[in-house]
Design a protein around this nucleic acid. Sequence first.
DNA 1: CTGAAAGCGCTTACAG
DNA 2: CTGAAAGCGCTTACAG
Lengths: 332, 332
Amino acid sequence: MATLKQVAAHAEVSVQTVSNALNAPHRLRADTLERVNRSIELLNYRPNRNARSLRTSAVELIGYCVPNWPHQTHLVMDQFLHALCAAAERTGRHILLFTAPPGVDGMPTYDDLHARRMVDGFVLSQTETHDPRHGWLKDEGIPFVSFGRVWKESTQPGPWVDVDGATGSAIAVRHLYDTGRRRIAFLGWPKSSGLAEDRVAGWRTACKELGLPTNGMAVRCREDSIEEGALATARLLDSGRDLDGIVALSDVLALGALRELTARGIVPGRDVGVVGYDDSPLAEVVSPGLTSLRQPMDRIAEELITILTGDQQPAERLLLPELVIRGSSAPG
Amino acid sequence: MATLKQVAAHAEVSVQTVSNALNAPHRLRADTLERVNRSIELLNYRPNRNARSLRTSAVELIGYCVPNWPHQTHLVMDQFLHALCAAAERTGRHILLFTAPPGVDGMPTYDDLHARRMVDGFVLSQTETHDPRHGWLKDEGIPFVSFGRVWKESTQPGPWVDVDGATGSAIAVRHLYDTGRRRIAFLGWPKSSGLAEDRVAGWRTACKELGLPTNGMAVRCREDSIEEGALATARLLDSGRDLDGIVALSDVLALGALRELTARGIVPGRDVGVVGYDDSPLAEVVSPGLTSLRQPMDRIAEELITILTGDQQPAERLLLPELVIRGSSAPG
DNA sequence: CTGAAAGCGCTTACAG
DNA sequence: CTGAAAGCGCTTACAG
């Protein structure tokens, strides 16, 4: 394994010059640069990252805590990780994965990784209401950026990127409206999470703007399962509200809606338009395919990395979800 | 940020002694050790990992390429990543994520990460038939271990861990048999992947051992979707074979089976027992829950890390899947 | 059991 | 534009 010194000897220049050829090529005369590059190629030289990091005290590694959460939450995690990894690589960085206990108990792990100079900073996700991590990291002066807001806090510590759930629901409602739907229900969650409230609020606002009924059209499911989505849909149908559109807070709930509709001989897409959330792998594997609001993972990842590796000035980015249209919301 | 030198000064010993306190505490006298540890604690000292890695030329980082594949393949990836991460941490290591083109085009990326000393070795997964990575890495002398066999190769380069699909299918068949099923079909894939052949072979063998019919009971689906699983099930039912059990090559196909059965008024679990593969997040989110063969992710990860960080002698571990029993295979 | 010293492979002011 | 030298923070034979 060649070292800088060997390359320098081979090219008959100083190590400084080789280092410059790699990190500040503009400082070299063209002919010197070419000679050095030839030696680099010939010796198949690859700079030792640890030596560089020791000197510069930057490791070009970003910590990301792999969550160990209920299965449903994970459905879309792979897309995020891939996007995050690709975005990091575009800046010459990589993602270091680690596990940590949830909440404040996990903070020593974050601190340790940073103190040992194993990462330069962190990307946080799976943000919870009153997530303690943001304030903790900010107080410690550890760089981070959050995917998702710490909801209900008026002023959130540190920079974040998030997706506008309210506008997402509004997009879904308008899409259903455009395909001829006039009685559009909403399937939500019980727990008053910021995310859930955001999404239901968008549905309500959009319906009112379009002059559509909202009274009794929103149902809270007890948990995020197909079964609960089906039960909630059944309740709506039984209440005689004669709905022709459904926006669900998650793809899993939407699948429940599809199942219940189909079981009653109501054809999703023809008789009732259905839209889910997050464009999980499920959405394209069912038939008809499920129309769903996709979080723009590539944009999200790009913004996260840009903010984290940038000048760390307060940054807050609210991105729009994209409606991925499939058979479940075909014009009626 | 305290350094080794500062700790040594504070404890009034040499840096060598502090280093030993951390890496070979048995070399110190008890009272010295305690004094050093007090100083470490007091100064909140955390050794700089880059300096250590530079010296020892080991980074304690394991490379893992995040696949960018069809969605279905990913359903179970989170479980694997979490398990892998946890297993690595138990040995003081971490996972470094990266992206690379598939096949041989990705090899320079692997080589580069290793040459720059950013990782000590690799865990390979998503193994394909004739996967070129194993031979390439072995030739380069880069440490790695594979999750999944390079099928059809009689002798595979490098160590691997895999799950015994044939025995898995046999377990499923016997479970269905024990719950009273006597006509057990198999839903498979078209492409003759090693994995698929392994699983269908196990089904066939087990059926024959139990004296169950296999003729015309195995169907190949065109792709891994709910729709195709449903269509295949419909074909089986229409062929008048009067089946009472189904083993599917994937949870997605099994969901298709559940859907088609339900659509025909056949109750899964009561009338027909259904078993899927891989215990994906889908399995517990449907109703009835889907019985499925779970790959023992924690064991797999543990073995992978042990082999990779061990003495690298040829290691081949074939683990058994575990049957996770849910409502879809309730006794008839 | 403990210490002084060399060295891992880089980068970066500083001179020339 | 190029070079000699110091130093990042560790570990590890080697002496004592």
